[in-house]
Design a protein around this nucleic acid. Structure first.
Lengths: 127, 127
DNA sequence: CTAATATATCAACAATCATTGATATAACTA
DNA sequence: TAGTTATATCAATGATTGTTGATATATTAG
């Protein structure tokens, strides 16, 4: 093995690994094309389930399944109005994970969401 | 079904759907915890495979497998030096997908990568 | 040439997850 | 009340994918 001062990024440090797992689960949720399409629709405004699954050409139960995943991840919020349940994007949560993404994967910039200072360490400190 | 002017975002428009699929595949690649850890390490600088799989405690063949996925997605680049193959992050490619992510999922801001103008339509135009 | 090291590949297995069909729940309407 | 609409749940299936063990390739050292 080539001699190198191995800093052991991401290993043994439960806090950092926890954040990596958190990001990983978010990315898994949004990496499905149908769920990305749903988020696209909802970014334009609140919609009931009909007005999600019909324009996208997805079965109602499949759409409900994906909405459940997005809901459980906190990425969308709901509001009942009579027979209808309206879904909308939870921007705060999306922004939170976007900051996490930017800190871990992309550069180091971030908006104020309270996860900035500690996260920068992820690139430097050892476990 | 509730009456609503359905714009049919993301449906029937091959260009937009293609970009959604492109983003989807990128997100799938980076949504694995081990691959995220590898990217974390490589962000600090070039590394041979030993200096990736040993500090992370991953089997060599598993690491090779994940590196192949990252390589085929263009997210990392390689350089041979004797027995060793050094891996490094392909920042341009990461930035490209980060812009795609920001346009589709997050807000609308983006850096100059040539995919800006068309992508904003994704939120507005119909199929 | 032979041995050792670094990395990649392949086949098999296990686990995860998207999709489908059927059914249940909830709310409104007649 | 019964019937209709909107949405959710459940079980089963199929596809994808992460993981492992064994083996192959490539490079250097002796």
């Amino acid at each position: 093995m080539k001699n190198l001062d191995v800093e052991e990024c991401c290993k043994g440090d439960s806090v950092k690994l926890k954040q990596l797992k958190e990001l990983s689960e978010y990315l898994k949720i949004i990496s499905d094309v149908n769920r990305l399409q749903i988020l696209c629709l909802l970014k334009k405004g609140e919609r009931c389930v009909c007005n999600i699954h019909e324009p996208l050409g997805l079965p109602q139960n499949l759409t409900s399944h994906h909405l459940k995943a997005l809901r459980e991840a906190g990425l969308v919020l709901t509001r009942r109005e009579g027979k209808w349940i309206h879904y909308r994007v939870n921007s705060d949560r999306i922004n939170y994970f976007t900051n996490l993404y930017n800190l871990i994967v992309s550069g180091g910039e971030y908006e104020d969401q309270g996860i900035g200072a500690g996260m920068c360490q992820l690139q430097e400190a050892g476990g």
